[in-house]
Amino acid sequence: MTAHTAGSVVPRRAVIERMGDAALIATLADELDAAASGWALRAATAVDARRVALPGLEAAVPGHGSVLVPFDPGRCRESQVRALLEAVLDETRRAEPAPGGVLHEIAVRYGGVDGPDLPEVADRTGLSEDAVVALHAGTEYRVLVLGFMPGFPYLGILAAQLDLPRRATPRVRVPAGSVAIAGRQTGIYPFESPGGWHLVGRTDVPLWDPVRQPPALLAPGDRVRFVPR
């Protein structure tokens, strides 16, 4: 997982490169940036909308500042995919006037056994634990990407005062529902796994259920607000 610091880079143009013999990747920004992330999401949605028109095009994958477009080289040509991607990037460059997205309010128990890194975060940022919680819960986040593990939401952008690199030594076991921060992002571990982010709290909201449709509670573009309890 990347814990990248935010930049103020406004995306100007995309760089399209090969990811192997059956995918192209368009890079829209080299640093975490809300505008580029929104562009990547709009582009991925627009590519998916054209899958009927270009058989062989596979589901696009939005990244933090990039979009991956896999295709079946047996059914369409790379040049067709590249042309389509260029057109889509051009069309989606400008942000829509009113970005939507479902708002999720997620109840969090901060600190204590649920957020064992809260004291360290407070210490390293020079803030009180209460101030860390106020900052973390005081921001409305957007789901930038799902990744790293099924249903893990990368949420941005975290307050600059809470910007910390990942833990030097990742934990072998992070409990399910842990709310964590790293760089200018915050996330929620959908199930128990290893992890290197700082754990500040925990929620009981089920984020991932493979037999539910859709299996992930959150989708890229959704909004999230944490509510201390």
């Binding site: 990347t2 990811m19 192997g20 995918a23 890079t27 990244g63 933090h64 990039s66 896999p70 990744g147």
Partner: peptide, 12 residues
């Protein structure tokens, strides 16, 4: 050096 995360695929 660490870069902004992007989608990856098997074989990368």
């Amino acid at each position: 050096r660490e870069i902004l995360s992007h989608p990856v695929i098997p074989g990368a």
